[in-house]
Simulated assay, not measured.
Amino acid sequence: MKSFAFRGLPLVLVLLLAGCQNTPSHNVLPVDELVSAFRQLDVSLAEERLDDARSQLDALQRRTSGDTRLEQYQRQLADAYMEQGREALQQGDLDRAAQALGQARSLLPQAPSLSHDLNQAIDRAREARQNAAEQQAREAAARLDAQRQEQLRQQRQEQLRQQRLAVERQLKAAAAVTEPAVEPVVERAPKARLIDLDATTSSVALPMLDNQDNENLRRLLDSVAADVVTFHCAVRIEVREAKDYPWVAALLSARIKKLDPTFRPRLSQKIVPQQVPRLLLSPQRK
């Protein structure tokens, strides 16, 4: 029995060694290959090739998910994307800034506060860009409206001139036949359309400004312009937001100029967010 045990021992060792060699290894990389992969990731980060670094990090996470260094690289890459987003925002490239912000958030979804400031800055920049575009559109519309009103004024002046010439010709023809009776000219006091001539200041509400009813706003400003020119009124424009003042001022100025090109309106503004927009007209006292 003893000799049989000693004779069988080499066979058992051979079988054990063969079993160890055939045992598969899971998620184990050769040391030199793992070191090389991390070095490549470091180079990509140093050269700011962030998309390459993201691909390399994803590959390392799939192959060595338990490596504690991955969290550090994940945060480092997220910080790099945040910095890229801030630079893009300074350059006015909002799409690129938003893409960088999205990459940073996907890397650190458990820490949304890290990207909060950049996200707010992007939102503010987008809002400012939209407000600027809307302001440009309003200014362009005001210029176009002023041009159209000027064309209409010139056409009306030409019509009046032609009518005066026709009347003068008729009067000359009638004078050749008989001398017309001369009637005394009685000057009539001008009538106000909207203002109270007995009051120091009259208020004209502009609810259509809140409703964006430009048609009725223009119609009302026609009457306002007539009173301003006739009674030399100073005008204070009270609106909810500063962006509404240029729009109202442009429409009113165009109508005043149409009535009297030499008249210089006295306009001022006041921002009253909680009040219905209105005009305060103060006629000049003689």
Results as ranks from 00 to 15, higher is better:
120 Q>K: 09
84 Q>W: 05
142 A>E: 05
139 E>A: 10
33 E>I: 11
184 P>S: 12
192 A>E: 00
234 A>F: 03
104 A>V: 02
105 R>V: 07
178 T>S: 15
36 S>M: 10
259 L>G: 02
257 K>M: 10
183 E>K: 11
115 S>N: 03
218 R>C: 05
265 P>H: 07
112 P>K: 06
106 S>G: 09
286 K>G: 15
171 L>Y: 09
224 V>H: 00
114 L>N: 10
185 V>S: 04
266 R>K: 14
242 A>K: 10
54 R>L: 08
91 Q>A: 15
4 F>Y: 13
213 D>P: 01
77 L>D: 00
43 V>W: 10
94 L>Q: 08
179 E>T: 14
240 R>T: 07
74 Q>T: 09
118 L>Y: 02
134 E>W: 09
115 S>P: 00
95 D>P: 00
49 R>Q: 12
195 I>W: 02
104 A>R: 00
94 L>A: 08
222 D>L: 11
136 Q>D: 13
177 V>K: 10
130 Q>D: 06
51 D>P: 03
235 V>C: 02
193 R>H: 12
101 L>N: 01
188 R>T: 08
58 D>S: 08
245 Y>C: 01
163 Q>C: 07
14 V>P: 02
258 K>R: 14
204 V>D: 04
169 R>S: 13
66 G>I: 03
30 P>D: 15
51 D>F: 02
193 R>D: 14
256 I>S: 00
12 V>L: 15
262 T>I: 08
242 A>M: 10
187 E>S: 14
3 S>G: 09
188 R>G: 06
116 H>A: 15
237 I>P: 00
103 Q>M: 08
266 R>E: 13
82 M>H: 12
128 A>D: 05
106 S>L: 13
268 S>R: 04
65 S>H: 12
18 A>Q: 10
99 Q>R: 11
262 T>D: 14
96 R>H: 13
196 D>C: 06
70 L>R: 00
136 Q>W: 07
64 T>A: 07
80 A>N: 04
60 L>T: 01
145 D>W: 11
218 R>A: 14
174 A>D: 14
